[in-house]
Each structure stands twice: as structure tokens, then as C-alpha cells.
Nucleic acid binder design. Structure first.
Lengths: 113, 113
DNA sequence: ATGATAGTTAGCTTTATGACTAAGCATCAT
DNA sequence: ATGATGCTTAGTCATAAAGCTAACTATCAT
């Protein structure tokens, strides 16, 4: 199960950078042009471009160009695999804890005998 | 809001590697020794060690040494910040969508007049 | 047609990652 | 006390990440 999920690696990697997360939260407000994203971060345009391409390859944003302006929008569904993975893990981890609980109960019972 | 959250960066970065995710799922089953984690991955011990230290610095696992054996256990609560961040983002994004909806409604109304 | 504007590409630098080998240290079994 | 076991440290290597500058292209306004 979950042998190797390149999609997840891309997503987590994209989210691991604070600049990229701040770009995402900015885009969550409203779509923005590349320069709009450059100004507040204090980063140069090419740097922002690189971040954007990482985000786009992860599927977290989509961009389109109109004239000389590129507009970036967020892609909310892109976070689904992350959420799903988290839910799966939680299920497994809680399952494990239940088993440990069961084991502890059994052990205590045996001791009590 | 969410200026720079080093904790999140550590977590996301730790989760971005498939080997580390597989170590986590393995540890979700039951605690394991370092060699137990080395065998199935086919990776050398020092490599596994490095992965473990990344996971530990992110707070995702805890380790303890008894004699010459180090045992690794998962730390389920460690995923909470990730889940929280996801929830926050979802809230913001949905907020944004509602606003867009409102805008669209207004525009349609104006057109209808 | 000129100049400003918006983005893009190319190339460079520094630091971090992920893997390895080889050698070291600390225990445990005999 | 010796050797095997289990982990650790040190050092190497190749590649990727994150930033920059400089130069280039494409569009829009005048």
C-alpha cells in the first residue's frame, strides 16, 4: 500500500518551502500576476518564477498568460491527496494504538491472574 | 498570519521523501530497531540513520537506546500542525470561493438590469 | 517607432540532500 | 577476552534547491 507516490512527494516538497506557502496563501485571497507575488516576498522575478513552476508541477496552482501578463490561480482540489494520506495514516496509527491497548489489557489481565 | 512556520517546513520536508514515508508506515505497524528499517528499504544503515534524524527533528518519531539497540516509535500527534494548516487553507480557499460567488451573483444581477 | 512594462531564459553561486564506503565504538554472547 | 552485532561518525560524491544578475523577448502606450 502506498508503494511510492510521486504525486505526494511533489506536493509535500512544494509545501515544504515557506515562500511557496506564503504564495499559496496570497493566491488563496485572489488570483495574482507574477509581479504581484514578487513585490511582497521581496524576491526577484526569476526566483518567484521558479517557485511558481514548482507549485504548478505539483498541481497546486494553474497559470495562464494574457498579453504579457501571467495570472496565477490556486487549485484547491490539489490538496486532496495530502488530506487523504493524512487520513490514512491517522487510521493506521490509531489502529496500531488500539492494538497496543488490547495488548496492554491482555497483559494486565494475565498479571492479575 | 502564518508568517514563517519552521515547524511546518520541517514536517513537510520530512514527508516529501518516499523512503521516509515508507519508514513511517512501517513504524505505524509497530516500533522497530534501526536495522529492521534498513533491511526492507535496501538502504545502508547510515542512510537510514540520516532519514531517521530528519524524521526525529520533525518530531514525527521518537527514538530511545537500550544497550546497543535503538528503538524507533511513531509520534502520532506530530501530524497535527499539518492537519491544522490544511484545515486553515481549506477555510480560506472556501472563503475566497464564496466571495467570488457573491461577486458573480452581483455581476449577473447588474447584467440582468 | 520608442520606451516602458511583464515576463522569460541562461548562467552562476552556495548550500542542502541522499546515497555510499570505511572505519570506529559500544554491547552482548561465549 | 574475543568476536560478532548494532549502531555511529567521518568523509566522499553527485545531484538538486534557492537565490542572484544580466540579457533577452514580447507586449502595451504614446
Amino acid at each position: 500500500m502506498t508503494k511510492h507516490h510521486p504525486e505526494l512527494s511533489l506536493l509535500f516538497h512544494a509545501l515544504a518551502d515557506p515562500t511557496r506557502r506564503s504564495i499559496l496563501t496570497r493566491l488563496a485571497e485572489t488570483p495574482a500576476r507574477v509581479s504581484d507575488l514578487s513585490a511582497p516576498t521581496g524576491l526577484r522575478l526569476p526566483t518567484v518564477m521558479r517557485h511558481l513552476s514548482v507549485l504548478e508541477e505539483a498541481g497546486l496552482i494553474a497559470t495562464s498568460k494574457d498579453g504579457r501578463v501571467r495570472t496565477c490561480v490556486i487549485v484547491p482540489e490539489a490538496l486532496e491527496p495530502v488530506r487523504t494520506w493524512l487520513d490514512e495514516q491517522r487510521a493506521i496509527w490509531e489502529g496500531r494504538l488500539s492494538r497496543l491497548d488490547a495488548f496492554a489489557m491482555k497483559t494486565m489481565k494475565e498479571r492479575a491472574e
